[in-house]
Amino acid sequence: MDDWRDGIFEAIKAAGVTQVAYVPDAGHSRLIERSIEDNDLRAVSLTTEEEGVALLAGAWLGGAKGVLLLQSSGVGNCINMLSLARTCAFPLVMLVTMRGEWGEFNSWQKPMGATTQGHLELCGATCYRCDRAEDVRETVESAFRFAHYTNSIAAVLLGQRLIGAKVFEEPAAC
């Protein structure tokens, strides 16, 4: 089966994206590498995720489409800036890699992981959850269509079961 990560990249290209804004995450690393290598994409590394919400509003004003890649912890950084997308009806697609759930070892990831979807929905985003590789490409394509046609915020939550839980080393026996 094709790699779901490449499916996201193909969906981004098919949607006409030219600006890829990101705060790195292991789950997005392949997508970030492919975006940097692609001469038709501008991969913009951010210092904080909220910059990306504003960056992509500016991109849309200039006639360019974008996508924001972030981890669930970064959703919390975006909250007030999402008022820009919501108030002005800027299309915004956020691809969120989840932490703090399936097989998580780091308890500091739990608070945002457990509330990511709730925060996004309170901010007016429509969330699409993906836990199976075969659903990813179609879900990302749908998110772009939804955001671009309805001038709204769409977030795809890529589950930790799909990405694979991060492992640093065997946890010590409790």
Partner: peptide
């Protein structure tokens, strides 16, 4: 609103145009 948003909005616009 969107305090802190002017500079990154300008950056995205500058890259697009």
């Amino acid at each position: 609103g969107a305090m802190g948003g002017a500079v990154p909005t300008g950056l995205g616009l500058a890259l697009a145009q």
